[in-house]
């Protein structure tokens, strides 16, 4: 926790480039995110937005540039300090909802079972599904599964939450329940980076919106500017397309 207080920014990316073989997915990305800031990243598929959050989560490696999270490299972070929510939920299908949530605290933090259960139940309350604790993920709806996945990350009490298209795999009527939980989290001051095309959510929650295309951050600004007066033609085009439908 001491890191949190001393570092100036939550995240600093400096001239980060990444290649898959010959294909460059990220081109000289420089980006800072403040403590408690909510950043929404949007852009067409293949623009590199998921790659940024996957790098920050330590799921991928980059070839050039530096990434610091609370003044530390990604691989030097404490266990579960960077929470991640996936498009496909990635809940553990062989474990009950409760066991999905207690696994991290018990195995990664060495927390005793009763304490881990209490913490898990508290976060299940928070995402409003405590009654599903004993079910298997497969018995839940998509929206419920994603809320469980958010609670699973929160059980590690992360300093930073990453969301990689958290509502893209959901039926439309389930998107709202997941976004509500995310907004609730945002109000509590969590530092969040969300890759999403939910522009209503961006407008309500984001401090800044970043538009990516072709491995670059084309522009980054507060939502009131982004949605009314985008600077680049590419962003304007993109907004036009996704807002119409």
């Amino acid at each position: 926790m001491t890191n949190t207080e001393h570092s100036k920014h939550a995240i600093t990316m400096d001239a980060v480039s990444k290649w898959y073989d010959d294909f460059q997915v990220l081109r000289d990305i420089s980006l800072t995110v403040d403590h408690g800031e909510k950043l929404v990243i949007c852009g067409p598929s293949g623009s590199g937005k998921s790659t940024i959050v996957r790098l920050l989560a330590g799921l991928e490696t980059h070839q050039k540039g530096t990434i610091r999270v609370y003044d530390q490299p990604v691989d030097a972070q404490g266990r579960g300090d960077i929470g991640m929510v996936f498009q496909q939920f990635n809940l553990f299908p062989h474990l009950s909802v409760l066991d999905n949530l207690t696994l991290g605290p018990m195995r990664a933090l060495g927390m005793p079972k009763p304490e881990a259960r209490d913490r898990a139940m508290a976060y299940l309350e928070r995402v409003r599904i405590p009654e599903q604790a004993d079910k298997r993920p497969g018995q839940l709806s998509g929206g419920q599964q994603q809320r469980v996945a958010i609670a699973r990350s929160l059980c590690m009490e992360p300093k930073l939450m990453l969301f990689d298209e958290p509502t893209s795999a959901l039926d439309p009527e389930m998107i709202a329940e997941v976004l509500e939980v995310m907004e609730d989290l945002a109000r509590d001051g969590m530092t969040m980076i969300c890759v999403t095309h939910e522009m209503g959510f961006a407008r309500r929650v984001a401090d800044r919106v970043a538009f990516m295309d072709n491995g670059e951050i084309v522009e980054i600004e507060p939502p009131e500017i982004a949605f009314t007066a985008p600077k680049s033609a590419r962003f304007a085009q993109f907004l036009d397309k996704i807002l119409k439908h």
């Binding site: 330590g58 996936f86 496909q88 990635n90 809940l91 990664a108 590690m156």
Partner: peptide, 25 residues
């Protein structure tokens, strides 16, 4: 693959991910 990735993001080591997440499945 997402199973190992999720295990990693909740702080499990590679060995723990294998033991508690991958092998049982």
């Amino acid at each position: 693959r997402g199973q190992a990735e999720a295990a990693q993001t909740i702080g499990l080591s590679r060995a723990q991910a294998m033991r508690y997440v991958i092998l049982p499945q």
